[in-house]
């Protein structure tokens, strides 16, 4: 329970970092996974889960006005589930493919849930913001500031609650599913880690398959292949 609470608090804090536009990017799963791992005493496992979850969304660009998956909570969920379920089942470190696959699947759903929650919240909170702006125009600046800052609590509570629920419900679910052969068989250990980055390459190509970038993209690819061949 202490581990779930600790991960949930981290989830809340990273949600604040992400939604308040603090913008330091520590909430990105690449970093958030490592932080979760450090907090739960398994930095390598947390880092692997967070980083490979990030790679699934590598080429994702947040477009203005478009709903965007809640990657910070997804990253914490992936890392915490992977660590806790591995610990429960005595999973073989550093990579147990089945557990990692189920943790990532639940994390993708958490990221999707966050996307819909924030869309609904942006719509519902407009009335509250209007009231705060009325206060500001009327010279009641303290009230306006209080409303603005109180919304940070909403982001924290959402981040906390979604990680708590995902870990409380997802931990036994992922443990059972990972032990049930045939649902997802992640093959030999570590194989899933070879496949996930392909998803990231597919989405990042959307950005770079343009005339002005193509030369550099091809150069990076070819020079690396040549360098590795020579190195070997």
């Amino acid at each position: 329970m202490t581990s779930i609470l600790a991960a949930s608090i981290l989830g809340g804090l990273l949600a604040v970092e992400h939604r308040s536009s603090l913008g330091l990017m520590v909430s990105q799963p690449l970093v958030g996974g490592l932080l979760t791992g450090i907090l739960l005493g398994a930095p390598l496992q947390g880092f692997i889960a967070g980083a490979f979850f990030q790679m699934l969304f590598l080429g994702h660009v947040r477009l203005r006005g478009e709903r965007s998956p809640d990657l910070p909570s997804g990253g914490v969920a992936a890392a915490a589930l992977y660590i806790l379920v591995s610990r429960d089942s005595g999973g073989v470190p550093p990579v147990d493919g089945d557990i990692l696959a189920w943790s990532m699947l639940i994390a993708i759903l958490v990221a999707g849930l966050g996307m819909y929650f924030h869309a609904a919240w942006c719509s519902r909170s407009a009335g509250l913001a209007d009231r705060a702006l009325e206060h500001a125009r009327g010279g009641r600046f303290r009230e306006a500031s209080s409303i603005h800052l109180s919304m940070l609590a909403v982001h924290f509570l959402y981040g906390f609650a979604v990680i708590f629920a995902a870990l409380a419900a997802g931990r036994p679910l992922a443990a059972r599913a990972a032990g049930n052969q045939g649902l997802i068989d992640a093959g030999p250990q570590g194989l899933i880690l070879l496949l996930i980055p392909f998803v990231g390459i597919g989405s990042i190509l959307r950005i770079h398959l343009v005339k002005s970038h193509a030369f550099w993209l091809a150069s990076g690819f070819l020079l690396t292949v040549i360098a590795v061949m020579i190195w070997r």
Partner: peptide, 27 residues
Amino acid sequence: AGCAAFASGVFGALVFLRAWSFGGPRL
């Protein structure tokens, strides 16, 4: 932008080379 495209090329090459050395042509 050029650096980003170059880095993506490096990343892509490393992922494919790793897949080749661990799983062969099928991967």
